[in-house]
């Protein structure tokens, strides 16, 4: 009782809006501290999100009034010849990225975990490309991939492999870009797996060893099951990130090398909005893209939960 009394008296002394009842001042105070965040989020996130929907039904004019056009932008999307190509490109990009980059961090993390020395060294080295701005890395990689003077072709020649066109080859452009993306991000993913591996109690391995489990069996029955929840999460996150890729194809190939081999949804949105100043159409594309991505991750979650539930039974 004494303590509450003391609290109450100090409150009457210190509260800033002392005319108002205490509860009200606490809420006012709370919103005073929230105000900067609310203003910023309203301006750069909430309002633009609402505007995205609105703009997708408009022919947007930056100077005069925007005109409502109903579903015209969405109708146009149906006829857009790039739509099918972009869809296929996204699937191919995602497949290449899973193929080239999904297993690497898992394997590397398991290997690094076993190192008795130099763990920190490998960790920081693999992580370094993640901090590099993509646009700067592209300057270097563009030269590495150069068909004439590039070091990659020179290197392959040592083994008698014929030089390739890489970014200029419609077939190789996608994997070439995905390789650079993998270089830039696998270190971060490795660190995430590594920190998860360090959570495994070593007693589990000791017990398995005593029971006569071979090293491979220990990986199969202890390490991988432990990693599985994160692997499953990172799988969907990686696909979501690759489908939204912009900077690499924009700077490496501008969507080329031919007509649209590396055209991605975001690149298409950028071209329409800022190349052709067709903001309404670009907004319609953004809305559809996000709906597709959200639907995909929801579907993935449901399937995942079903599988997990079935395994438990």
């Amino acid at each position: 009782m004494k303590l509450t009394y003391a609290l109450q008296t100090t409150r009457t002394i210190t509260r800033p809006f002392s005319v108002l009842p205490y509860r009200l001042t606490r809420h006012l105070n709370g919103y005073l501290f929230l105000l900067p965040a609310i203003i910023v989020f309203a301006l750069v996130a909430w309002y633009p999100i609402v505007r995205a929907f609105q703009m997708s039904f408009q022919e947007v004019s930056l100077i005069g009034e925007s005109k409502n056009v109903g579903f015209e932008n969405y109708e146009l999307m149906k006829k857009d010849p790039a739509r099918k190509i972009i869809f296929e490109n996204s699937i191919e990009f995602a497949s290449w990225s899973i193929l080239l980059g999904y297993a690497v961090p898992v394997v590397v993390a398991i290997l690094v975990r076993e190192m008795r020395f130099g763990k920190g060294f490998f960790r920081i080295v693999y992580f370094l490309p993640s901090v590099v701005p993509v646009s700067i890395a592209v300057i270097v990689w563009r030269f590495i991939y150069d068909p004439d003077a590039g070091v990659l072709n020179e290197f392959l020649e040592l083994f008698g492999i014929k030089g390739q066109l890489w970014l200029y080859d419609p077939k190789l452009a996608k994997p070439s870009i995905v390789a650079v993306m993998t270089w830039g991000t696998f270190g971060t993913t490795t660190l995430i797996y590594l920190s998860s591996l360090l959570d495994i109690p070593t007693e589990l391995y000791e017990a398995a060893e005593l029971d006569g489990a071979s090293p491979l069996m220990r990986i199969r029955h202890i390490t991988l099951p432990h990693l599985f929840p994160i692997m499953s999460l990172l799988f969907v996150l990686q696909i979501l990130a690759v489908v939204q890729v912009f900077t690499e194809p924009f700077l490496f190939t501008k969507g080329g090398p031919g007509r649209r081999e590396t055209l991605t949804p975001v690149l298409h949105i950028y071209n329409r909005a800022f190349g052709r100043a067709d903001m309404g159409y670009a907004a319609a594309w953004s809305v559809v893209l996000v709906i597709v991505l959200v639907a995909f991750s929801a579907f993935y979650q449901i399937v995942n939960r079903r599988i997990a539930a079935r395994q438990e039974n």
Binding site: P48, I49, R51, M55, A283
Partner: peptide, 9 residues
Amino acid sequence: IAYLVPLFV
């Protein structure tokens, strides 16, 4: 990306 274009506007 959903609201990049309206953000710019």
